[in-house]
């Protein structure tokens, strides 16, 4: 039997405050101007892998489809290449809207589980915040150790090639004045 789904949307299912929330984020102001032409989706190198095209994400955000938007794969597939924003005829900065949605998704723990993209972002964030610099090897190592250990084995040959070409330093680099960085980050308004 073909499963049948009822997809009607009632106003009470929607969160109409959501668009105001997104629009108040710096860079996302122009979301009102969208004319739904779809040039962002056509310009996007990844839209063909997304569950909703970027154009749809904008429409859904404006209409308060909060749950669908925050749990979508789309926002995590965005590679932040800004092609959408470069093409947009209405100067909607779609990339910044994607960033804002990603942040809300993390805040509300709505992002897809066991999906490596937010995991990499988080691992990178934590590492750099304390060390001041990234160590490509360790960040990648930590992500895959958590998400899928077997992937690490598959990466070995490439790792070895990079290592022998002096392109994969194993030392954990850090800045000298980590205290200064810590002072800055702990004095930001948004920081708890």
């Amino acid at each position: 039997m073909i499963p049948i789904q009822r997809t009607i949307k009632y106003e009470s299912d929607l969160d109409h405050a959501f668009r105001e929330k997104i629009m108040s984020v710096q860079g996302c102001e122009n979301i009102w101007s969208c004319i739904q032409c779809g040039q962002c989706s056509a310009a996007c190198p990844l839209s063909i892998y997304m569950d909703y095209t970027p154009r749809k994400i904008i429409a859904m955000t404006r209409e308060g489809f909060r749950e669908e938007v925050l749990s979508s794969r789309t926002i995590w597939l965005c590679a932040s290449c800004y092609a959408c924003a470069a093409y947009c005829p209405q100067n909607v900065n779609i990339t910044e809207i994607m960033y804002a949605l990603k942040r809300y998704a993390i805040e509300e723990k709505k992002y897809p589980k066991n999906f490596p993209i937010p995991e990499l972002a988080k691992a990178f964030f934590t590492y750099v915040k304390t060390h001041g610099r990234n160590a490509e090897f360790w960040v990648v190592f930590n992500v895959w150790r958590r998400v899928a250990v077997f992937k690490l084995l598959k990466m070995l040959p490439l790792g070895w090639k990079l290592l022998t070409r002096r392109r994969l330093p194993l030392r954990r680099d850090r800045i000298q004045n980590t205290r200064q960085l810590k002072t800055i980050l702990s004095n930001l308004n948004g920081e708890a």
Binding site: Q36, C37, G38, S41, A42, S47, Y52, R55, K56
Partner: peptide, 11 residues
């Protein structure tokens, strides 16, 4: 020509 067919939602 690369375009999103926005009535269907597909590139």
């Amino acid at each position: 020509i690369r375009v999103e067919d926005s009535l269907i939602g597909v590139v």
